[in-house]
Amino acid sequence: MCGRYTLTVTLEELMVRYMIGETMVPFHRPKYNVAPSQLVLTILNDGNSNRLGELKWGLIPPWADNPKIGFQMLNARSETAAGKPAFRAPLRRKRCLIPADGFYEWKTTAQGKQPMRIVLKSRALFSMAGLYETWLSPEGTKINSCTILTTTPNELVAPIHDRMPVILRPEDEQLWLNRVVTDVTAIAPLLQPYPANELEAYPVSAAVGNVRNDEPALIEPYWTDEQLELW
């Protein structure tokens, strides 16, 4: 599962990275502890250009009776998404990118659960593969929401957690966003674990476990004496 991540760059950096000309997003500040049910920045393609917008993290299918189902749809397993009612249609027609520069997972140790931050060794932005949907309540309330696709872990993440987000290579992002491509076999090769030798993991403070905490100190390496002996 991917349940927390970071996006610590500016809005201008995002727009340059994803070739966004204009955006309706009024403001973005660096986020050090992005959590489920929050509005998260995502990249869509309207058929002509990339667009930057906000979606609620936790996909709500159009047929849902209650939007609270989104809490059960934070992630979609890439291996089975094509066969799931909630994810089948968006996998074909409603794919998005969810930008990040790190994600958190909790490693089981003798001392308890240790939060780890996983980043590219280059510390560059990366794109997690996402799906999105629009839900309309009987009263006319509209909620645009998303989920993050996960896959089996690579050699770096496996000792930490049994799943990891699908991270797309920059050269594959436009294929993922291409709304003309509706054959899931064409995008299936993209849903692979990201190479372990291009990632790095390090321990961070347990403070990241509280969603109310959202400050730069959360992404700083946090080594206790015991951890220094273990790692």
Rank of each mutant, 00 (worst) to 15 (best):
N50W: 03
T182M: 06
P189F: 07
Y18G: 02
W231R: 12
D214S: 11
A35N: 03
G112D: 03
V180N: 15
N45L: 01
G3Q: 04
P61S: 12
A129G: 09
A110N: 14
I60F: 11
R92F: 02
M73F: 11
R212I: 06
R92Q: 02
A158E: 14
E139T: 13
L168E: 14
C146G: 00
L149P: 10
Q227C: 11
D172E: 03
F27A: 12
P85W: 11
C146D: 00
P203S: 13
N33D: 01
N213T: 09
S145P: 13
P195C: 08
P203W: 03
V184G: 14
W57C: 08
T147K: 04
D101F: 03
R95K: 09
Q192H: 12
P90G: 07
P85H: 04
Y18Q: 09
Q111P: 10
L55W: 11
F103W: 00
L59C: 04
I160G: 03
T42R: 02
A201T: 08
M15S: 01
E139K: 11
L228H: 03
P216T: 03
P61F: 10
F87K: 09
M15K: 12
P203F: 06
L91N: 01
I187C: 07
E22K: 13
S122E: 05
W57A: 11
N48F: 12
H28G: 00
I160R: 05
L156M: 04
G53K: 12
L41C: 09
I98N: 14
S122A: 02
N66P: 00
L228D: 08
W106S: 13
L191V: 01
G58I: 00
L11E: 05
E139I: 01
P138W: 09
L7A: 01
Y104C: 06
I219M: 09
L230K: 06
E13Q: 11
G58H: 11
A186R: 14
L55M: 15
L52R: 08
G102P: 11
K31D: 14
R93Q: 15
A217N: 15
T141M: 13
